[in-house]
Every structure is written in C-alpha cells, then in structure tokens.
C-alpha cells in the first residue's frame, strides 16, 4: 500500500465531504484523493478508472446480499498504484465524493469555456 503523500505543490480544493476530499495540483496535472485514511495521487486516466470502478459496484445488490461474506469490496485499478479495500458504507461515501468531484470539474470546464474562450 502506498503511504500517505505529503504536499509539495499548491493544491486547489475540488470537493470535500465529511468523509474525504479531492484536491487538484495544476503543476503536477493530477489529483490527490484523501479517503479511507490515505492520500493517493491520481492522474487523469487513473481518476477516470477509479470513477468507473466505483460507479460499477452495484450497491443495492450488495445490500440485499444475504450471504455471510463480509461486506467488503476491493477496488483495484489496473496500471494505477492504488488499491482500496472498502466496506459498503465507505463505498457509498467514495461514490458521493467522486460524484461531487466530477460535477466540480465539469463546472470548472464550463467556466473555462465561458470565461477564457
């Protein structure tokens, strides 16, 4: 597991919830996801892959699942350095964090389109 990273470049807040936060580093052209006790660095491809992986988890199905397996999901993203082992509650929180993040990135895109075009 990758150790928590420390900040070396200026970060901009993208989105925050009570469970986590996402920051952007313009200089490094990447994002830092602070969630489940660690801060992990994601480039553009990996962030999209993380979103895809999290959105693909069928939360409703997992809640209805009555088998005795622990309610844990492992999110492993191919070609990225990170792996998350999360409970259902954490997955819901991560999904909320990512949804907010992408809304903010979309908003930022609209601002760039309107202001700097």
């Amino acid at each position: 597991m990758i150790a928590t990273l420390t900040q070396t470049t200026p970060w901009t807040d993208v989105f925050k919830t009570t469970k986590g936060a996402v920051y952007q580093s313009d200089e490094e052209r990447c994002w830092y996801v602070d969630f489940a006790g660690k801060v992990a660095k994601f480039d553009h491809r990996c962030l999209l892959k993380l979103r895809k992986a999290v959105y693909h988890i069928d939360i409703e199905q997992a809640l209805l699942n009555t088998t005795k397996d622990p309610d844990v999901e492992i999110i492993f993203i191919c070609a990225c350095d990170h792996c998350y082992v999360l409970t259902l509650v954490q997955i819901i929180a991560l999904k909320e964090l990512l949804e907010g993040t992408f809304v903010m990135l979309e908003l930022n895109h609209i601002l760039h389109d309107k202001l700097y075009a």
Binding site: T12, V14, Q24, D26, R29, C30, W31, H44, R45, L48, L105, N108, H109, H112
Partner: peptide
Amino acid sequence: MKDLLRIKSLISTE
C-alpha cells in the same frame, strides 16, 4: 484551477 480533463482530451467522457 486548470481544466485538466480538457487538456488531456478533446472529447468529453460521455
């Protein structure tokens, strides 16, 4: 804040 997604790709994810 830079529009990083736009820098990487001309087309949207949709």
